[in-house]
Design a protein around this nucleic acid. Structure first.
Lengths: 229, 229
DNA sequence: TGAGCAAGAATTGTATACGATCCAACATCA
DNA sequence: TGATGTTGGATCGTATACAATTCTTGCTCA
Protein backbone atom coordinates (compact mmCIF):
# COMPACT_ATOMS: atom_id res chain seq x y z
CA UNK A 1 0.00 0.00 0.00
CA UNK A 2 1.31 3.43 -0.92
CA UNK A 3 2.09 5.90 1.80
CA UNK A 4 -0.60 8.45 2.48
CA UNK A 5 1.78 11.37 2.16
CA UNK A 6 3.53 11.27 -1.18
CA UNK A 7 7.08 12.54 -1.43
CA UNK A 8 7.07 13.25 -5.13
CA UNK A 9 4.77 16.10 -6.09
CA UNK A 10 1.58 14.87 -7.69
CA UNK A 11 0.72 15.96 -11.19
CA UNK A 12 -2.62 17.51 -12.06
CA UNK A 13 -3.52 14.38 -13.99
CA UNK A 14 -2.95 12.09 -11.03
CA UNK A 15 -4.97 14.30 -8.74
CA UNK A 16 -7.79 14.34 -11.26
CA UNK A 17 -7.60 10.56 -11.51
CA UNK A 18 -7.84 10.13 -7.74
CA UNK A 19 -10.78 12.50 -7.54
CA UNK A 20 -12.43 10.67 -10.44
CA UNK A 21 -12.07 7.37 -8.63
CA UNK A 22 -13.54 8.86 -5.48
CA UNK A 23 -16.59 10.03 -7.38
CA UNK A 24 -16.96 6.81 -9.34
CA UNK A 25 -16.83 4.80 -6.13
CA UNK A 26 -19.35 7.13 -4.56
CA UNK A 27 -16.99 8.17 -1.80
CA UNK A 28 -17.70 11.70 -2.96
CA UNK A 29 -21.39 12.35 -3.41
CA UNK A 30 -22.98 14.71 -5.93
CA UNK A 31 -23.09 18.19 -4.46
CA UNK A 32 -19.97 17.74 -2.35
CA UNK A 33 -17.72 20.79 -2.33
CA UNK A 34 -14.02 20.52 -3.11
CA UNK A 35 -12.11 23.37 -1.52
CA UNK A 36 -8.86 24.24 -3.19
CA UNK A 37 -6.79 24.77 -0.05
CA UNK A 38 -7.93 21.46 1.34
CA UNK A 39 -6.86 19.64 -1.82
CA UNK A 40 -3.55 21.52 -1.74
CA UNK A 41 -2.83 20.16 1.72
CA UNK A 42 -3.93 16.64 0.85
CA UNK A 43 -1.85 16.37 -2.28
CA UNK A 44 1.01 18.67 -1.28
CA UNK A 45 0.92 20.94 -4.29
CA UNK A 46 0.07 24.55 -4.93
CA UNK A 47 -3.33 25.85 -5.95
CA UNK A 48 -2.11 26.21 -9.52
CA UNK A 49 -1.99 22.45 -9.93
CA UNK A 50 -5.17 21.80 -7.97
CA UNK A 51 -7.06 24.29 -10.11
CA UNK A 52 -5.78 22.59 -13.25
CA UNK A 53 -7.19 19.27 -12.15
CA UNK A 54 -10.50 20.82 -11.11
CA UNK A 55 -10.80 22.45 -14.52
CA UNK A 56 -10.16 19.22 -16.34
CA UNK A 57 -12.79 17.45 -14.26
CA UNK A 58 -15.22 20.22 -15.05
CA UNK A 59 -14.67 19.57 -18.74
CA UNK A 60 -15.47 15.92 -18.20
CA UNK A 61 -18.70 16.90 -16.53
CA UNK A 62 -17.72 15.39 -13.19
CA UNK A 63 -17.46 18.73 -11.43
CA UNK A 64 -19.30 22.00 -11.77
CA UNK A 65 -17.33 25.15 -11.05
CA UNK A 66 -19.38 28.13 -9.93
CA UNK A 67 -17.62 31.44 -10.29
CA UNK A 68 -16.29 32.73 -6.99
CA UNK A 69 -18.01 29.87 -5.18
CA UNK A 70 -15.91 26.84 -5.91
CA UNK A 71 -15.98 23.35 -7.38
CA UNK A 72 -18.76 20.88 -6.59
CA UNK A 73 -19.40 17.32 -7.65
CA UNK A 74 -21.99 17.67 -10.40
CA UNK A 75 -25.64 16.89 -9.80
CA UNK A 76 -27.02 15.89 -13.20
CA UNK A 77 -30.59 16.92 -13.80
CA UNK A 78 -33.18 14.41 -14.90
CA UNK A 79 -32.86 15.64 -18.46
CA UNK A 80 -29.11 15.15 -18.39
CA UNK A 81 -29.60 11.66 -17.02
CA UNK A 82 -31.78 10.77 -19.97
CA UNK A 83 -29.37 12.36 -22.40
CA UNK A 84 -26.43 10.41 -21.04
CA UNK A 85 -28.10 7.08 -21.61
CA UNK A 86 -29.44 8.10 -24.99
CA UNK A 87 -25.91 8.99 -26.06
CA UNK A 88 -24.57 5.71 -24.69
CA UNK A 89 -27.27 3.86 -26.59
CA UNK A 90 -25.99 5.44 -29.79
CA UNK A 91 -22.32 4.78 -29.20
CA UNK A 92 -21.91 1.55 -27.27
CA UNK A 93 -23.77 -1.17 -29.19
CA UNK A 94 -21.91 -0.53 -32.43
CA UNK A 95 -18.67 -0.26 -30.51
CA UNK A 96 -19.32 -3.58 -28.79
CA UNK A 97 -19.91 -5.19 -32.17
CA UNK A 98 -16.61 -3.93 -33.52
CA UNK A 99 -14.81 -4.95 -30.34
CA UNK A 100 -16.24 -8.48 -30.39
CA UNK A 101 -15.05 -8.92 -33.94
CA UNK A 102 -11.56 -7.61 -33.19
CA UNK A 103 -10.93 -9.05 -29.73
CA UNK A 104 -7.90 -11.30 -29.33
CA UNK A 105 -7.04 -13.66 -26.48
CA UNK A 106 -5.29 -11.02 -24.41
CA UNK A 107 -8.31 -8.74 -24.68
CA UNK A 108 -10.66 -11.48 -23.56
CA UNK A 109 -8.41 -12.36 -20.62
CA UNK A 110 -8.52 -8.76 -19.56
CA UNK A 111 -12.30 -8.65 -19.71
CA UNK A 112 -12.42 -11.85 -17.63
CA UNK A 113 -10.22 -10.28 -15.01
CA UNK A 114 -12.47 -7.26 -14.92
CA UNK A 115 -15.50 -9.40 -14.25
CA UNK A 116 -13.68 -11.35 -11.57
CA UNK A 117 -12.66 -8.12 -9.88
CA UNK A 118 -16.27 -6.98 -9.98
CA UNK A 119 -17.35 -10.20 -8.31
CA UNK A 120 -14.67 -9.89 -5.67
CA UNK A 121 -15.70 -6.34 -4.88
CA UNK A 122 -19.33 -7.35 -4.55
CA UNK A 123 -18.37 -10.29 -2.35
CA UNK A 124 -16.66 -7.85 0.00
CA UNK A 125 -19.67 -5.59 -0.06
CA UNK A 126 -17.74 -2.80 -1.74
CA UNK A 127 -20.55 -1.64 -3.97
CA UNK A 128 -18.73 1.58 -4.89
CA UNK A 129 -15.67 -0.24 -6.13
CA UNK A 130 -17.84 -2.71 -8.05
CA UNK A 131 -19.59 0.16 -9.76
CA UNK A 132 -16.33 1.75 -10.80
CA UNK A 133 -15.06 -1.57 -12.17
CA UNK A 134 -18.29 -2.00 -14.06
CA UNK A 135 -17.66 1.32 -15.76
CA UNK A 136 -14.11 0.29 -16.58
CA UNK A 137 -15.49 -2.82 -18.27
CA UNK A 138 -17.42 -0.66 -20.71
CA UNK A 139 -14.37 1.50 -21.34
CA UNK A 140 -12.26 -1.57 -21.98
CA UNK A 141 -14.63 -2.56 -24.76
CA UNK A 142 -14.11 0.78 -26.49
CA UNK A 143 -10.38 0.27 -26.16
CA UNK A 144 -10.63 -3.16 -27.75
CA UNK A 145 -12.67 -1.68 -30.57
CA UNK A 146 -9.64 0.59 -31.15
CA UNK A 147 -11.88 3.63 -31.21
CA UNK A 148 -9.98 6.28 -29.32
CA UNK A 149 -12.38 9.11 -29.99
CA UNK A 150 -15.42 7.15 -28.92
CA UNK A 151 -13.53 5.89 -25.88
CA UNK A 152 -12.93 9.47 -24.85
CA UNK A 153 -16.60 10.32 -25.12
CA UNK A 154 -17.53 7.15 -23.32
CA UNK A 155 -15.23 8.09 -20.48
CA UNK A 156 -17.28 11.23 -19.96
CA UNK A 157 -20.57 9.41 -20.34
CA UNK A 158 -19.59 6.75 -17.83
CA UNK A 159 -18.46 9.42 -15.40
CA UNK A 160 -21.82 11.07 -15.67
CA UNK A 161 -23.57 7.73 -15.43
CA UNK A 162 -21.89 7.26 -12.10
CA UNK A 163 -23.36 10.53 -10.91
CA UNK A 164 -26.76 9.61 -12.31
CA UNK A 165 -26.65 6.28 -10.51
CA UNK A 166 -25.68 8.00 -7.26
CA UNK A 167 -28.70 10.25 -7.58
CA UNK A 168 -31.34 8.12 -9.25
CA UNK A 169 -30.54 4.43 -8.65
CA UNK A 170 -33.55 2.59 -7.31
CA UNK A 171 -32.01 -0.44 -5.63
CA UNK A 172 -28.56 -1.15 -4.43
CA UNK A 173 -27.82 -4.57 -5.86
CA UNK A 174 -25.67 -4.48 -8.96
CA UNK A 175 -25.79 -8.23 -9.44
CA UNK A 176 -27.61 -8.05 -12.75
CA UNK A 177 -24.64 -6.05 -13.98
CA UNK A 178 -22.16 -8.86 -13.86
CA UNK A 179 -24.58 -11.26 -15.50
CA UNK A 180 -24.93 -8.94 -18.44
CA UNK A 181 -21.18 -8.59 -18.57
CA UNK A 182 -20.82 -12.35 -18.55
CA UNK A 183 -23.14 -12.67 -21.50
CA UNK A 184 -21.15 -10.02 -23.35
CA UNK A 185 -17.95 -11.87 -22.61
CA UNK A 186 -19.39 -15.01 -24.20
CA UNK A 187 -20.25 -13.09 -27.34
CA UNK A 188 -16.69 -11.81 -27.39
CA UNK A 189 -15.32 -15.32 -27.03
CA UNK A 190 -17.31 -16.36 -30.10
CA UNK A 191 -16.40 -13.18 -31.95
CA UNK A 192 -20.11 -12.75 -32.49
CA UNK A 193 -20.49 -9.07 -33.23
CA UNK A 194 -24.24 -9.16 -33.78
CA UNK A 195 -24.82 -10.79 -30.40
CA UNK A 196 -22.51 -8.34 -28.67
CA UNK A 197 -24.35 -5.42 -30.21
CA UNK A 198 -27.74 -6.71 -29.11
CA UNK A 199 -26.54 -7.64 -25.63
CA UNK A 200 -25.06 -4.21 -25.12
CA UNK A 201 -28.25 -2.57 -26.29
CA UNK A 202 -30.25 -4.62 -23.84
CA UNK A 203 -27.76 -4.07 -21.06
CA UNK A 204 -27.99 -0.31 -21.40
CA UNK A 205 -31.77 -0.42 -21.52
CA UNK A 206 -31.70 -2.56 -18.41
CA UNK A 207 -29.67 -0.05 -16.45
CA UNK A 208 -31.77 2.79 -17.81
CA UNK A 209 -35.00 1.12 -16.76
CA UNK A 210 -33.75 0.75 -13.21
CA UNK A 211 -33.29 4.45 -12.73
CA UNK A 212 -35.89 6.27 -10.72
CA UNK A 213 -36.26 9.14 -13.11
CA UNK A 214 -39.19 10.89 -11.47
CA UNK A 215 -38.86 14.47 -10.34
CA UNK A 216 -37.65 14.88 -6.82
CA UNK A 217 -36.78 17.58 -4.33
CA UNK A 218 -33.40 19.14 -3.92
CA UNK A 219 -30.59 17.90 -1.76
CA UNK A 220 -32.00 19.70 1.27
CA UNK A 221 -34.29 16.73 1.68
CA UNK A 222 -31.34 14.53 2.42
CA UNK A 223 -30.66 16.46 5.59
CA UNK A 224 -34.32 16.32 6.54
CA UNK A 225 -34.35 12.60 5.89
CA UNK A 226 -31.16 12.10 7.83
CA UNK A 227 -32.75 13.78 10.84
CA UNK A 228 -35.96 11.83 10.33
CA UNK A 229 -38.15 14.92 10.63
CA UNK B 1 -14.90 46.19 -36.82
CA UNK B 2 -13.69 45.83 -33.27
CA UNK B 3 -10.80 47.93 -32.07
CA UNK B 4 -7.44 46.26 -31.96
CA UNK B 5 -6.87 47.05 -28.32
CA UNK B 6 -9.75 45.90 -26.15
CA UNK B 7 -10.60 47.95 -23.11
CA UNK B 8 -12.47 45.34 -21.14
CA UNK B 9 -10.33 42.35 -20.17
CA UNK B 10 -11.26 39.30 -22.19
CA UNK B 11 -12.35 36.16 -20.43
CA UNK B 12 -10.76 32.80 -21.08
CA UNK B 13 -13.94 31.65 -22.78
CA UNK B 14 -13.96 34.53 -25.25
CA UNK B 15 -10.33 34.00 -26.11
CA UNK B 16 -11.00 30.31 -26.67
CA UNK B 17 -13.96 31.20 -28.88
CA UNK B 18 -11.89 33.54 -31.04
CA UNK B 19 -9.14 30.97 -31.40
CA UNK B 20 -11.75 28.34 -32.25
CA UNK B 21 -13.16 30.54 -34.98
CA UNK B 22 -9.71 31.16 -36.37
CA UNK B 23 -9.08 27.43 -36.62
CA UNK B 24 -12.52 26.64 -38.02
CA UNK B 25 -12.06 29.28 -40.71
CA UNK B 26 -8.62 27.90 -41.48
CA UNK B 27 -6.91 31.17 -40.66
CA UNK B 28 -4.84 29.09 -38.26
CA UNK B 29 -3.50 25.96 -39.89
CA UNK B 30 -2.83 22.62 -38.17
CA UNK B 31 0.65 22.70 -36.70
CA UNK B 32 0.66 26.44 -36.04
CA UNK B 33 2.19 27.36 -32.71
CA UNK B 34 0.40 29.59 -30.24
CA UNK B 35 2.87 31.31 -27.96
CA UNK B 36 1.50 32.37 -24.63
CA UNK B 37 3.19 35.76 -24.47
CA UNK B 38 1.95 36.65 -27.91
CA UNK B 39 -1.62 35.82 -26.98
CA UNK B 40 -1.21 37.82 -23.77
CA UNK B 41 -0.27 40.89 -25.77
CA UNK B 42 -3.03 40.40 -28.32
CA UNK B 43 -5.80 39.95 -25.78
CA UNK B 44 -4.39 42.10 -23.00
CA UNK B 45 -4.55 39.54 -20.23
CA UNK B 46 -2.05 37.64 -18.15
CA UNK B 47 -0.70 34.22 -18.94
CA UNK B 48 -3.00 32.72 -16.32
CA UNK B 49 -6.02 33.45 -18.49
CA UNK B 50 -4.34 32.55 -21.75
CA UNK B 51 -3.27 29.22 -20.33
CA UNK B 52 -6.82 28.52 -19.20
CA UNK B 53 -8.13 28.99 -22.72
CA UNK B 54 -5.35 26.90 -24.21
CA UNK B 55 -6.16 24.08 -21.78
CA UNK B 56 -9.82 24.14 -22.68
CA UNK B 57 -9.03 24.01 -26.36
CA UNK B 58 -6.68 21.12 -25.76
CA UNK B 59 -9.51 19.26 -24.13
CA UNK B 60 -11.71 19.87 -27.16
CA UNK B 61 -8.99 18.38 -29.32
CA UNK B 62 -8.36 21.60 -31.19
CA UNK B 63 -4.92 22.15 -29.69
CA UNK B 64 -2.16 19.84 -28.59
CA UNK B 65 -0.02 20.99 -25.68
CA UNK B 66 3.47 19.52 -25.55
CA UNK B 67 5.16 19.80 -22.20
CA UNK B 68 7.71 22.60 -22.08
CA UNK B 69 7.22 23.19 -25.80
CA UNK B 70 3.92 24.95 -26.09
CA UNK B 71 0.48 24.76 -27.69
CA UNK B 72 0.00 23.83 -31.33
CA UNK B 73 -3.06 23.52 -33.52
CA UNK B 74 -3.66 19.77 -33.62
CA UNK B 75 -2.73 17.72 -36.64
CA UNK B 76 -5.09 14.75 -36.55
CA UNK B 77 -3.64 11.53 -37.86
CA UNK B 78 -5.43 9.62 -40.56
CA UNK B 79 -6.74 7.20 -37.96
CA UNK B 80 -8.17 10.04 -35.93
CA UNK B 81 -9.74 11.41 -39.08
CA UNK B 82 -11.54 8.15 -39.66
CA UNK B 83 -12.58 7.92 -36.02
CA UNK B 84 -14.09 11.39 -36.10
CA UNK B 85 -16.34 10.57 -39.01
CA UNK B 86 -17.24 7.17 -37.62
CA UNK B 87 -18.34 8.84 -34.40
CA UNK B 88 -20.30 11.43 -36.32
CA UNK B 89 -21.96 8.66 -38.30
CA UNK B 90 -23.17 7.16 -35.03
CA UNK B 91 -24.44 10.39 -33.50
CA UNK B 92 -25.74 12.66 -36.22
CA UNK B 93 -28.29 10.67 -38.25
CA UNK B 94 -30.41 9.80 -35.21
CA UNK B 95 -30.04 13.34 -33.95
CA UNK B 96 -31.18 14.72 -37.31
CA UNK B 97 -34.23 12.48 -37.16
CA UNK B 98 -35.19 13.74 -33.73
CA UNK B 99 -34.55 17.33 -34.75
CA UNK B 100 -36.69 17.06 -37.89
CA UNK B 101 -39.56 15.73 -35.84
CA UNK B 102 -39.25 18.47 -33.22
CA UNK B 103 -38.38 21.49 -35.37
CA UNK B 104 -40.70 24.46 -35.19
CA UNK B 105 -40.94 27.45 -37.53
CA UNK B 106 -38.32 29.47 -35.70
CA UNK B 107 -35.86 26.56 -35.90
CA UNK B 108 -36.45 26.19 -39.62
CA UNK B 109 -35.99 29.92 -40.18
CA UNK B 110 -32.69 29.72 -38.40
CA UNK B 111 -31.52 26.83 -40.55
CA UNK B 112 -32.54 28.80 -43.64
CA UNK B 113 -30.49 31.75 -42.51
CA UNK B 114 -27.51 29.47 -41.92
CA UNK B 115 -27.70 28.16 -45.45
CA UNK B 116 -28.06 31.67 -46.85
CA UNK B 117 -25.01 32.79 -44.92
CA UNK B 118 -23.09 29.84 -46.30
CA UNK B 119 -24.06 30.85 -49.84
CA UNK B 120 -23.08 34.44 -49.21
CA UNK B 121 -19.70 33.40 -47.88
CA UNK B 122 -19.07 31.18 -50.86
CA UNK B 123 -20.15 33.95 -53.23
CA UNK B 124 -17.51 36.19 -51.68
CA UNK B 125 -14.94 33.44 -51.99
CA UNK B 126 -14.57 33.13 -48.24
CA UNK B 127 -14.22 29.38 -48.15
CA UNK B 128 -13.03 29.39 -44.55
CA UNK B 129 -16.07 31.24 -43.30
CA UNK B 130 -18.34 28.99 -45.33
CA UNK B 131 -16.76 25.96 -43.75
CA UNK B 132 -17.29 27.30 -40.26
CA UNK B 133 -20.92 28.09 -41.03
CA UNK B 134 -21.36 24.61 -42.40
CA UNK B 135 -20.19 23.23 -39.08
CA UNK B 136 -22.57 25.53 -37.24
CA UNK B 137 -25.41 24.13 -39.33
CA UNK B 138 -24.74 20.66 -37.96
CA UNK B 139 -24.52 21.99 -34.43
CA UNK B 140 -27.79 23.81 -34.86
CA UNK B 141 -29.47 20.51 -35.65
CA UNK B 142 -28.27 19.02 -32.38
CA UNK B 143 -29.61 22.07 -30.59
CA UNK B 144 -32.99 21.65 -32.25
CA UNK B 145 -33.00 18.01 -31.20
CA UNK B 146 -32.65 19.34 -27.64
CA UNK B 147 -29.78 16.97 -26.99
CA UNK B 148 -27.28 18.96 -24.99
CA UNK B 149 -24.89 16.13 -24.29
CA UNK B 150 -24.71 15.04 -27.89
CA UNK B 151 -24.37 18.67 -28.97
CA UNK B 152 -21.33 18.97 -26.75
CA UNK B 153 -19.70 15.92 -28.31
CA UNK B 154 -20.63 17.12 -31.75
CA UNK B 155 -18.94 20.42 -31.05
CA UNK B 156 -15.68 18.56 -30.49
CA UNK B 157 -16.21 16.33 -33.50
CA UNK B 158 -16.91 19.27 -35.78
CA UNK B 159 -13.84 21.05 -34.47
CA UNK B 160 -11.76 18.05 -35.33
CA UNK B 161 -13.50 17.70 -38.67
CA UNK B 162 -12.35 21.18 -39.47
CA UNK B 163 -8.77 20.11 -38.80
CA UNK B 164 -9.22 16.96 -40.82
CA UNK B 165 -10.59 18.95 -43.74
CA UNK B 166 -7.67 21.35 -43.54
CA UNK B 167 -5.28 18.42 -43.77
CA UNK B 168 -6.98 15.84 -45.94
CA UNK B 169 -9.62 17.53 -48.09
CA UNK B 170 -9.20 16.66 -51.74
CA UNK B 171 -10.87 19.58 -53.45
CA UNK B 172 -11.63 23.05 -52.31
CA UNK B 173 -15.21 23.54 -53.47
CA UNK B 174 -17.73 23.04 -50.70
CA UNK B 175 -20.68 23.45 -53.04
CA UNK B 176 -21.94 19.93 -52.50
CA UNK B 177 -22.21 20.90 -48.85
CA UNK B 178 -24.97 23.43 -49.27
CA UNK B 179 -26.92 21.13 -51.60
CA UNK B 180 -26.95 18.47 -48.92
CA UNK B 181 -27.96 21.06 -46.39
CA UNK B 182 -30.78 22.18 -48.65
CA UNK B 183 -32.11 18.65 -48.90
CA UNK B 184 -31.94 18.33 -45.12
CA UNK B 185 -33.84 21.55 -44.73
CA UNK B 186 -36.63 20.20 -46.92
CA UNK B 187 -36.91 17.11 -44.76
CA UNK B 188 -37.12 19.40 -41.72
CA UNK B 189 -39.87 21.42 -43.36
CA UNK B 190 -41.87 18.23 -43.84
CA UNK B 191 -40.99 16.99 -40.35
CA UNK B 192 -39.86 13.83 -42.07
CA UNK B 193 -37.51 12.22 -39.55
CA UNK B 194 -36.73 9.16 -41.63
CA UNK B 195 -35.65 11.29 -44.59
CA UNK B 196 -33.56 13.54 -42.40
CA UNK B 197 -31.79 10.54 -40.90
CA UNK B 198 -31.00 9.05 -44.30
CA UNK B 199 -29.91 12.38 -45.77
CA UNK B 200 -27.58 13.02 -42.87
CA UNK B 201 -26.11 9.56 -43.18
CA UNK B 202 -25.46 10.13 -46.87
CA UNK B 203 -24.11 13.62 -46.28
CA UNK B 204 -21.54 12.37 -43.79
CA UNK B 205 -20.52 9.52 -46.06
CA UNK B 206 -20.12 12.03 -48.87
CA UNK B 207 -17.71 14.16 -46.88
CA UNK B 208 -15.93 11.07 -45.59
CA UNK B 209 -15.41 9.69 -49.08
CA UNK B 210 -13.63 12.86 -50.12
CA UNK B 211 -10.81 12.51 -47.61
CA UNK B 212 -7.36 12.11 -49.04
CA UNK B 213 -4.00 10.92 -47.75
CA UNK B 214 -1.69 13.72 -48.75
CA UNK B 215 -0.02 15.80 -46.06
CA UNK B 216 0.37 19.55 -46.20
CA UNK B 217 3.11 21.87 -45.05
CA UNK B 218 2.03 24.21 -42.31
CA UNK B 219 1.51 27.82 -43.20
CA UNK B 220 3.52 30.45 -41.39
CA UNK B 221 0.92 33.19 -41.34
CA UNK B 222 1.26 35.67 -38.53
CA UNK B 223 -0.83 34.85 -35.50
CA UNK B 224 -2.01 38.43 -35.20
CA UNK B 225 -3.18 38.47 -38.82
CA UNK B 226 -4.98 35.18 -38.47
CA UNK B 227 -6.95 36.57 -35.55
CA UNK B 228 -7.71 39.77 -37.45
CA UNK B 229 -6.70 41.94 -34.51
C1' DT C 1 -38.37 37.46 17.67
C1' DG C 2 -36.87 38.09 13.10
C1' DA C 3 -35.38 40.76 9.13
C1' DG C 4 -31.89 43.61 7.54
C1' DC C 5 -27.21 45.06 7.65
C1' DA C 6 -22.20 45.54 8.43
C1' DA C 7 -17.60 43.93 9.45
C1' DG C 8 -14.31 40.44 9.31
C1' DA C 9 -12.96 35.84 7.87
C1' DA C 10 -12.72 32.52 4.36
C1' DT C 11 -12.37 31.40 -0.36
C1' DT C 12 -11.71 32.03 -5.09
C1' DG C 13 -9.74 34.86 -9.31
C1' DT C 14 -5.83 36.98 -11.48
C1' DA C 15 -1.25 38.77 -12.01
C1' DT C 16 3.38 38.33 -11.31
C1' DA C 17 7.95 36.30 -9.93
C1' DC C 18 11.06 32.79 -10.29
C1' DG C 19 12.90 28.34 -11.59
C1' DA C 20 13.22 24.69 -15.27
C1' DT C 21 13.48 23.37 -19.89
C1' DC C 22 14.17 23.97 -24.61
C1' DC C 23 16.25 25.94 -28.68
C1' DA C 24 19.28 28.37 -31.73
C1' DA C 25 23.62 30.35 -32.57
C1' DC C 26 28.27 30.21 -31.95
C1' DA C 27 32.67 28.12 -30.50
C1' DT C 28 35.74 24.13 -30.26
C1' DC C 29 38.23 20.22 -31.69
C1' DA C 30 39.26 16.00 -34.34
C1' DT D 1 34.65 20.57 -42.82
C1' DG D 2 31.56 18.54 -39.82
C1' DA D 3 30.23 16.84 -35.56
C1' DT D 4 29.81 18.07 -30.86
C1' DG D 5 29.63 20.98 -26.85
C1' DT D 6 28.33 25.29 -24.72
C1' DT D 7 26.14 29.42 -23.70
C1' DG D 8 22.47 32.93 -23.70
C1' DG D 9 17.88 34.00 -24.76
C1' DA D 10 13.24 32.53 -25.26
C1' DT D 11 9.54 30.01 -23.54
C1' DC D 12 6.99 27.23 -20.46
C1' DG D 13 5.73 25.31 -15.50
C1' DT D 14 4.79 26.21 -10.76
C1' DA D 15 4.48 28.81 -6.56
C1' DT D 16 3.20 32.76 -4.38
C1' DA D 17 1.21 37.44 -3.57
C1' DC D 18 -2.51 40.28 -3.84
C1' DA D 19 -7.30 41.66 -5.37
C1' DA D 20 -12.19 40.54 -5.67
C1' DT D 21 -15.97 38.09 -4.10
C1' DT D 22 -18.66 35.39 -1.07
C1' DC D 23 -19.87 33.62 3.32
C1' DT D 24 -20.41 33.85 8.33
C1' DT D 25 -21.31 35.97 12.41
C1' DG D 26 -22.99 39.21 15.40
C1' DC D 27 -25.41 43.50 15.86
C1' DT D 28 -29.27 46.83 15.44
C1' DC D 29 -33.83 48.15 15.24
C1' DA D 30 -38.64 47.73 14.36
Amino acid sequence: MAARTEIKPMTADKIAAQLTDAVHEHRLQPGAKLREDELCEIFGVSRTIVRQSLRSLEFEGLLTIEKNRGAFVSKPTLKEAHEVFQARALLEPTTARAAAERANDVDIDMLEQHIEAEHAALAQDEAGLALKLSGDFHLEIARIADQNTIEQFLRQLISRSSLVIALYWRRRNALCESNAHHALLDAFRNHNGADAEELMKGHLLDIYSQLDLREREDGTTSLRDALKL
